[in-house]
Amino acid sequence: MNRICLVTGAGSGVGQSAALALLGDGDTVYLAGRRMEALQETAALAKAGTAIPVAADVTDPASVDALFARIAADHGRLDVLFNNAGISARSINFGDLTWDNWRDTMSVNLDGMFLCASAAFRLMRDQAPQGGRIINNGSISAYAPRPGSAPYTASKHAVTGLTKSISLDGRAFDIACGQIDIGNAATAMTKVMTAGVPQADGRMAIEPRMDVDDVGRTILFMAGMPADANVQFITVMATNMPFIGRG
């Protein structure tokens, strides 16, 4: 394989795992994120493929435009976008949320997702041959909230709507769009779960986590689908986490 791929938030966690899985399959992967040092660390872990670190801020339209302009100039096309960059937030009861709390989460998890998907869609539509694949990183929070998670939960519900709209509008241009919903991958973002997190019944409980590389393998599976097939939604989660039956 030598797909031209872009992974946002590629400096750590899920983004790093996905990038390394694609690189391991022989792809050319643009590694995007705010911290060049972290992106270079991801690139150094690659054993195959071609890793190209590019510092970019997904919340800044000019930065996103520059990122996609470089990909277009280098290769003239993009085959796969893993639209991954996102942030979590500490648990805050809805009544105590501020506008800044809300906007901090939405600017990355929704606005950034839109900016990257929009730029990828236009490039995939205008390239020859047309087509490509956009994979949005949702969350199991797109289906069921955690206590005190209104901004994060709302952003991930919105990502689901975005995924469906892109999938529908992309049909005319051979652009497939799917969503991966992840539950408790072992990353720095979920380390707090090893000490206990709030449950719906008010308890604090330690939650199981799964190897983040299980996510990377799933992204590779989605990216490798033939052009006439799409993984519309897929959930990958720690087997024993309290999601099914949460409440």
Rank of each mutant, 00 (worst) to 15 (best):
C5P: 03
E207A: 13
A227M: 08
A150D: 03
V231G: 11
V197M: 13
L162V: 09
S107M: 11
L220D: 12
L123C: 01
G170W: 08
D27M: 09
G245A: 03
L20N: 07
G33I: 13
A172E: 09
S165H: 13
G148S: 12
P53T: 02
R90I: 04
A117W: 08
G15Q: 03
D201R: 11
A154E: 01
A51I: 13
D169T: 14
D27N: 14
P129H: 12
A238K: 03
E37Y: 05
F82V: 12
S167L: 15
S139N: 07
I4P: 05
G196M: 13
V212E: 04
S91G: 06
V236N: 00
D181S: 11
A72I: 02
L110Q: 13
N136C: 12
L168A: 07
D57V: 12
T42V: 03
G170Y: 06
A89M: 10
A119F: 06
F243Y: 12
P226T: 03
I180P: 01
G76V: 10
D65R: 15
E37N: 10
W102Q: 05
T42F: 01
A144I: 01
L97S: 01
R90L: 12
I4S: 03
K191A: 15
D74K: 15
P226S: 07
A227D: 07
F82E: 10
V14W: 00
L67V: 11
T98N: 05
I166W: 02
M1A: 06
E41D: 14
S149I: 00
R246H: 08
D214R: 13
M222P: 04
V7T: 09
L97G: 01
A186Y: 10
S139C: 05
V7C: 04
Q130R: 14
A117T: 09
E41T: 06
L220C: 11
V192C: 09
V212M: 07
P147Y: 00
S141K: 01
I206K: 13
R203W: 04
D201S: 09
F82K: 05
P198C: 15
D79V: 05
G95F: 08
G131M: 07
G161L: 14
